[in-house]
Amino acid sequence: MASIKQNPGSTVVVHSILAFFAVLALSPIAIIIINSLKSRAAIFASPLALPTPETLDLSGYASVLVESNFVAYFSNSMLITLSALAGTILFGAMAAFAISEYKFRFNTTIGLFFTLGLMIPIRLGTVGILNMMVAADLVNTRTSLILVYIAQSLPVAIFVLSEFMRTLSADLKNAGRVDGLSEYAIFFSLVVPLLRPSMVSVAVFTMIPIWNDLWFPLILAPSEATKTVTLGAQVFLGQYVTNWNAVLAALSLSILPILALYLVFSKGLIKGITSGAVK
Rank of each mutant, 00 (worst) to 15 (best):
142 R>M: 09
208 I>W: 00
196 R>I: 12
229 V>S: 06
195 L>W: 12
130 L>K: 06
162 S>R: 08
135 A>I: 03
131 N>P: 04
166 R>I: 03
177 R>Y: 12
229 V>L: 11
225 A>K: 13
213 D>E: 07
155 P>W: 15
210 I>M: 10
229 V>I: 14
160 V>M: 14
227 K>E: 13
130 L>E: 05
201 S>D: 05
144 S>Q: 06
158 I>R: 12
163 E>D: 13
129 I>H: 01
222 P>H: 06
127 V>C: 05
210 I>Y: 01
176 G>S: 11
186 I>Y: 07
214 L>I: 14
126 T>Q: 03
181 L>R: 11
172 L>H: 05
164 F>A: 12
182 S>F: 09
210 I>D: 00
211 W>N: 00
215 W>P: 02
210 I>T: 13
228 T>G: 09
147 L>E: 02
141 T>H: 12
148 V>T: 14
163 E>A: 14
202 V>D: 10
196 R>Q: 12
184 Y>D: 02
127 V>G: 06
233 A>M: 12
193 P>S: 12
144 S>N: 07
139 V>S: 04
208 I>P: 00
223 S>D: 15
216 F>P: 00
188 F>N: 10
205 F>M: 15
219 I>R: 01
198 S>R: 01
209 P>K: 08
201 S>G: 07
218 L>F: 06
153 S>F: 09
219 I>M: 09
132 M>Q: 12
180 G>R: 14
127 V>M: 08
199 M>P: 03
155 P>K: 14
225 A>Y: 10
227 K>G: 11
160 V>A: 11
124 L>V: 03
191 V>T: 15
171 D>A: 02
175 A>P: 05
202 V>P: 03
204 V>Y: 01
205 F>I: 14
215 W>N: 08
219 I>A: 05
166 R>F: 06
166 R>M: 12
181 L>E: 11
158 I>D: 13
180 G>C: 13
184 Y>W: 11
139 V>R: 07
167 T>H: 05
232 G>E: 09
145 L>D: 00
131 N>L: 13
158 I>N: 12
185 A>Y: 06
146 I>D: 01
170 A>P: 02
124 L>H: 01
208 I>D: 00
144 S>D: 06
170 A>G: 01
207 M>D: 00
194 L>Y: 08
217 P>V: 01
163 E>P: 02
231 L>R: 00
206 T>E: 01
168 L>T: 03
133 M>W: 07
194 L>S: 15
218 L>V: 03
217 P>A: 08
126 T>N: 01
199 M>G: 04
226 T>H: 07
163 E>H: 08
145 L>S: 01
206 T>F: 00
213 D>H: 03
180 G>Q: 13
157 A>N: 10
151 A>G: 09
219 I>D: 02
142 R>H: 09
212 N>H: 08
233 A>H: 00
224 E>A: 13
229 V>M: 11
124 L>N: 02
216 F>M: 02
183 E>C: 06
131 N>Q: 14
133 M>G: 04
172 L>Y: 07
139 V>I: 15
177 R>C: 06
233 A>F: 01
207 M>N: 02
146 I>K: 01
192 V>M: 15
143 T>D: 04
231 L>Q: 02
224 E>Y: 09
225 A>T: 14
228 T>P: 05
159 F>C: 09
159 F>Q: 10
177 R>E: 07
134 V>F: 10
